[in-house]
Amino acid sequence: MSFVITITVNGDEKRISEGQTIADYIIGLGFDPTKVAVERNREIAPKSTFNTQVLSAGDTLEIVHFIGGGNNA
């Protein structure tokens, strides 16, 4: 039996199944982990920990797309 927890993602409350890592969750949403940074509770999660950080009830996530422009072209 799996439990459901509530987290906040980009400002919206989401109910998700317990036990998911950051990688599980964002891949499930359709994101390519090489193209985004994930901010968990106002701190950027190091990419090397995406597979080990398990989401907890009450977490606040922001999914941040990398931008690389200097608007030179």
Partner: peptide
């Protein structure tokens, strides 16, 4: 690492 095919987006 480089973020795949997004890397060439410019203004």
């Amino acid at each position: 690492e480089l973020p795949g095919d997004d890397q060439n987006r410019t203004c």
